[in-house]
Simulated assay, not measured.
Amino acid sequence: MQAPILQNNRVKLTLLDLSNYWHLTAIAQQPNLVQFSPSKIDTPEDLKDYVQHAVNSYYQKTAIPFIIFDKLSNTYAGCTRFGLINWHNKVLHIGWTWIGTEFQGTGLNKNMKFLMLQYAFENLNFEKVEFRIDERNIKSRKAVEKLGAKLEGILRKDTLMLDGFKRNTCCYGILVEEWPELKNTVFKDY
């Protein structure tokens, strides 16, 4: 599987792997960056393990992890991923996204989500894109709702967090037939 390079005037997404993840070391140490995730990334060893897991999933053809380069500030901003790729059912998830606090609220996330949705629907010809978000993560939930994703349900106490808490996970989705309208309204300037 060949990883695409997705880019526009604002952002460039390339394959995240063990040769480039070190660009994210300082960002990964920011407090509460992945507070609503079951992942640990705040030490160099934890970050390397996180990336190794993503790379393994890439070779198993169940994920495509990306490192995010912000063209506006000319620096690396974080990472994101196509994951839980189901090639047979034409469904994948966009997630495992974290960007440094200085990039949040700048439009970077919307730019990269546009590129990822466009690629999933128009190049991979997938029929559905899903997002799974901790019920408590209101900021991320509002962000995917602004993209046009619809809440499909809540999985109760389905994910064990690092502190032992069992979170509820909100499941959002966008269908391929919804994409043209979203592309012409939500993403009309991209």
Rank of each mutant, 00 (worst) to 15 (best):
Tyr50Cys: 00
Gln29Arg: 14
Asp42Thr: 10
Tyr21Gln: 03
Gln35Met: 11
Ser37Cys: 11
Pro38Val: 02
Pro38Gln: 05
Asp46Val: 01
Pro38Met: 02
Thr25Lys: 12
Val34Met: 05
Pro31Gly: 03
Gln35Arg: 13
Lys40Val: 13
Ile41Cys: 06
Glu45Gly: 08
Lys48Val: 05
Phe36Glu: 03
Ile27Glu: 12
Gln29Trp: 01
Trp22Tyr: 05
Ile27Arg: 10
Gln30Ile: 03
Asp46Arg: 12
Tyr21Val: 07
Asp42Asn: 15
Tyr50Leu: 02
Val34Lys: 01
Asp46Lys: 14
Ser39Gln: 06
Lys40Tyr: 10
Asn32Arg: 13
His23Met: 06
Leu47Tyr: 07
Ser39His: 10
Ala26Pro: 00
Glu45Val: 13
Ala28Asn: 10
Ile41Gln: 11
Glu45His: 12
Asp46Gln: 15
Asp46Ser: 14
Pro44Asp: 06
His23Asp: 01
Phe36Leu: 06
Asp46Gly: 05
Ala28Glu: 05
Val34Ser: 03
Val34Thr: 12
Leu47Pro: 14
Thr25His: 05
His23Lys: 07
Asp49Leu: 15
Ile41Trp: 07
His23Tyr: 15
Asp49Val: 11
Gln35Cys: 04
Lys40Glu: 15
Thr43Asp: 02
Ala26Arg: 14
Asp42Lys: 15
Thr43Leu: 02
Lys40Cys: 07
Asn32Pro: 01
Asp42Phe: 14
Ser39Met: 05
Tyr50Asp: 00
Lys40Leu: 13
Leu24Trp: 02
Asp49Trp: 11
Asp42Gly: 07
Asn32Leu: 07
Ser37Val: 05
Gln30Thr: 05
Gln35Phe: 09
Pro31Glu: 10
Gln30Cys: 06
Ile41Gly: 09
His23Arg: 07
Gln35Pro: 00
Trp22Arg: 05
Ser37Ile: 04
Glu45Met: 12
